[in-house]
Computed example of a mutant assay.
Amino acid sequence: MKIGDRVVMNDNYRVSEGNKGKVFVVRSEPWDLCGTECVLLEEYRGGYAVDGLTLVE
């Protein structure tokens, strides 16, 4: 996953109704947070686990 990728939140974690199906743009390189690879997303506060995201083609 890299900066500029378009992603949606998948069902690996609970996703709020407002974020289901919403396309986000990755705005950081992945980093390790306590053993979980995370990224920052545009229009989302805080990091989000990479395994909870699916790339949009």
Rank of each mutant, 00 (worst) to 15 (best):
M1T: 06
M1Y: 02
M1D: 10
M1E: 07
G4C: 04
D5F: 05
R6E: 14
R6P: 00
V7S: 03
V7I: 14
V8G: 00
M9S: 03
M9V: 03
M9E: 00
N10W: 07
D11I: 01
N12S: 12
Y13A: 06
R14N: 06
R14T: 12
R14D: 06
V15G: 04
V15F: 11
S16D: 14
S16R: 03
N19K: 12
K20H: 08
G21H: 10
G21M: 05
F24M: 09
F24P: 05
F24T: 07
V25T: 15
V25P: 00
V25I: 15
V26H: 06
R27P: 02
R27H: 04
S28Q: 07
S28V: 05
S28K: 08
S28M: 04
W31C: 09
L33R: 13
G35E: 09
G35F: 11
G35I: 09
G35R: 10
T36R: 14
E37W: 13
C38V: 14
V39K: 10
V39T: 02
V39P: 11
E42I: 00
E42M: 09
E42P: 00
E43Q: 12
R45P: 01
R45D: 15
G46H: 09
G47P: 08
G47C: 08
Y48S: 06
Y48R: 10
Y48W: 13
V50Q: 05
D51R: 11
D51K: 08
D51C: 01
G52K: 03
G52N: 12
G52W: 09
L53Q: 02
T54L: 08
L55T: 07
V56F: 02
